[in-house]
Amino acid sequence: MKKRLYLELENCIGCRSCLAACTQCGGHEERNRNYVYDVNPLVNRQTMPLMCLHCVNPACARSCPAQAIQIHETGAVLSALVEKCIGCQNCTIACPYGIPKFDTEQNLMYKCDLCIDRSKDGIPPMCASVCPTNTLQWLTDEEIEAKQKQFNLDNGKWVTSMPYLEGETNVRVNLPGILQGVTKLF
């Protein structure tokens, strides 16, 4: 049963456990690959994870002159292959969300690979395993659909890839505002 990374941005508390966990993935050389962003730090404590969305037609891979960014059969857009990456940093500019990071010492791009050694066997990536708030979840399409129904979300307004993002993505994003459609119990 295929599972996807699903983000419910409203839930984030900014603990950055996702980043700590990212360093723990076997293939990640103890470097974290995503971002958590303080939305308006002088005003309130709202935060949001900024994760690679694993685009269906990824700009990062398209921009790479050396074909260093491979797409796994699960749809995960992998980190640059060490032997192929020429360190041109095209991908960091091409990605609409600024995801790929660059290691100047190794002259190498590195990015989220959805913990491919886990996710290829259906084991949730580290970030979605630990996220204490369910901002990051690892769900089947049926479960994501159920979420859509639960929150009374019409025409993909809240559970979305399109039209709010640049292109179709494997990761599903639920923008802040999720609770607006919830009817109170009393």
Partner: peptide, 20 residues
């Protein structure tokens, strides 16, 4: 959220059900 973060998914779930 900062001192006992891992109970937060349960707290948010109350609101998702329409609770307070």
């Amino acid at each position: 959220a900062e001192c006992h973060p891992t109970m937060m998914f349960r707290v948010w779930a109350i609101q998702e059900r329409g609770g307070y």
